[in-house]
Write a protein that binds this DNA or RNA. Structure first.
Length: 484
RNA sequence: GGCCCCAUGGUCAAGCGGUUAAGACAUCGCCCUUUCACGGCGGUAACUCGGGUUCGAGUCCCGAUGGGGUCACCA
């Protein structure tokens, strides 16, 4: 086990190749949570050794997303730290130095084989591993070809016999036969290291104690251990994470058109809910809590709660959580995050915003639902008489024809156009005429909105609409009924 | 295909040899009610299949099946 005196250091090491995927974010979150829980440090390192895959702007997305999600790193490219640089492309000299040392230690060797020869090693299915051809080159020949400036790579020298075993903190004992591991390239001909080498060198140099990453590295970890051993370095603890799936067969990925973190935010999911939800995909606190703030997650996170099987991303549940976060927001907070969506509505600015927001708060789970929930306020047109039919309320168009003129009169007389007094006025009206409350309320609401379902009852809609509009609409509806 | 890994309701997921197999989301129904929503109550729904081990298996072992990952000068 890890020495207790060693402070925990975890890292998130993304490649700036595009969007921040949900799976990546979760990996970052777990690394962060574990470091916080253990009182350790969380490091951000950019793995940009493949210039071909570099995407402009991707680095900024990484910074922004982590910041937005509340994941704060103690060391990183933009915040510094004593183990920098934290960008791999700025560490080329370091990798070369260590690669050469690994060659001296027998853990790696120079290879001059060209593409054609490598291709010839593969069978009809495109599979076939490197045959260690250059391992057998004499020291003189290697020196001569190097001096002649021949292109080369440095390959790992994996034993032909035996196997590598390690204890993964979530998967347990993992064993892989060395014969199943190829002599992979550590240093590319362009002088840059591959992930396979850079991650080992950096994790060691940066003092990473716990490597938290996706399960795709589960079976390649033994070859990294071979390098730690060859260098005489202590191996880190490994925590491999199962993938987040889109369905039973496909991984969640941007390439499949699945939502990235920023896509979800743009769709109106509350960031806090997204973080909360992904924390629950593959992990659970023993106490069964589900809605947890970042601080609570930091407090209760434990590797013991990590699951080994893939989890399917379930948007309905995220939706529910998002709604929970909205419901507990202060009016000010809700107004602030709802405003951008309110502005997209056709009725923006035409109604009392505080009133609109109050009605929306318990009826919206993701902010993008806002426009569709209130746009009807401007879509008032002919009312289908059938809408007045309601069995439970015992109303229909003929009842409405009696109720509406009376309601028109009552509302015209109302002095205070607010929900409570308006409600009382309508209830009183019902009592006077021997109608059921529902008969008045239902008919008025239909007349006012033309909708079977609205975000609020008759008096709430009346207050929102305002006296003038109410009178006009009620009049219109009553006239239409008379003509019929 | 070789190798590695995984397997409880539709989804997340508890369980770590003896349970009426939790809980949440979704779904369905009821209540509340001024439609909708909120809130409250309740229902439907799961241990992939075979073999072992054991007095006893969702829990341990083996196999099958299914699924995922990996076999790049990508990470």
């Amino acid at each position: 086990m890890q020495d207790n005196r060693t402070t925990v250091r975890t890292r998130f090491a993304p490649s700036p190749t595009g969007y921040m995927h949900i799976g990546n974010l979760r990996t970052a979150l777990y690394g962060y949570l574990f470091a916080k829980k253990e009182g350790g440090k969380f490091v951000l390192r950019l793995e940009d050794t493949d210039s071909k895959r570099y995407v402009a702007g991707a680095v900024q997305i990484i910074y922004d997303t982590l910041k937005d999600a509340g994941i704060v790193y103690d060391e990183g490219p933009d915040v510094g730290g004593e183990f920098g640089p934290y960008i791999q492309s700025e560490r080329a000299d370091i990798y070369r130095k260590y690669a050469e040392e690994l060659v001296r230690r027998g853990g790696a060797y120079y290879c001059f084989c060209d593409k054609e020869r490598l291709e010839s090693l593969k069978d009809e299915n495109g599979v076939g591993r490197y045959d260690k051809h250059c391992l057998h080159l004499s020291a003189e020949e290697v020196a001569r070809r190097l001096a002649a400036g021949e292109p080369y790579v440095i390959r790992q020298n994996v034993p032909e016999e035996g196997s590598g075993t390690y204890e993964d903190l979530v998967y347990g004992t993992v064993t892989v036969d060395f014969k199943d591991i190829e002599d992979g390239i550590l240093l590319k001909s362009d002088g840059m290291p591959t992930y396979n080498f850079a991650n080992v060198v950096d994790d060691h140099l940066m003092g990473i104690t716990h490597v938290i990453r996706g399960s795709e590295y589960l079976s390649s970890t033994p070859k990294y251990n071979l390098m730690y051993d060859a260098f005489g370095w202590e191996r880190p603890q490994y925590v491999h994470l199962p993938p987040i799936m889109k369905n039973a067969h496909e991984k969640l990925s941007k390439r499949n058109g699945d939502a990235s973190y920023q896509d979800l935010v743009a769709k109106g999911y509350i960031p806090q809910a997204i973080v909360n939800y992904i924390a629950l995909l593959g992990w659970n606190p023993k106490d069964n809590r589900e809605k947890m703030s970042l601080a609570e997650l930091e407090e209760s996170f434990s590797l013991a709660g990590l699951n080994k099987s893939p989890a399917i991303f379930d948007e309905p549940k995220l939706r529910w959580l998002s709604g929970e976060y909205i419901k507990e927001m202060s009016d000010e907070a809700f107004a602030a995050c709802a405003r951008p969506f309110l502005e997209k509505s056709k009725v923006y600015g035409k109604y009392d915003e505080a009133k609109v927001l109050r009605l929306l708060k318990t009826r919206v789970e993701i902010l993008s639902e806002i426009p569709e929930k209130i746009d009807f306020l401007e879509e008032f047109g002919e009312i289908d008489p059938a809408l007045y039919n309601n069995k439970k309320m015992k109303t229909d168009a003929s009842v409405a024809a009696q109720v509406l003129p009376a309601a028109l009169q009552a509302l015209s007389a109302a002095e205070c156009f607010e929900n409570a007094p308006l409600y009382e006025a309508m209830v009183a009206l019902a009592a006077q005429n021997g109608w059921k409350n529902g008969q008045v309320l239902w008919c008025v609401r239909i007349a006012l909105t033309g909708r079977e379902s609205t975000p609020g009852g008759a008096s709430e809609m009346a207050e929102l609409l305002g006296k003038e509009r109410c009178i006009r609409r009620l009049q219109q509806a009553a006239d239409a009924l008379n003509r019929a």
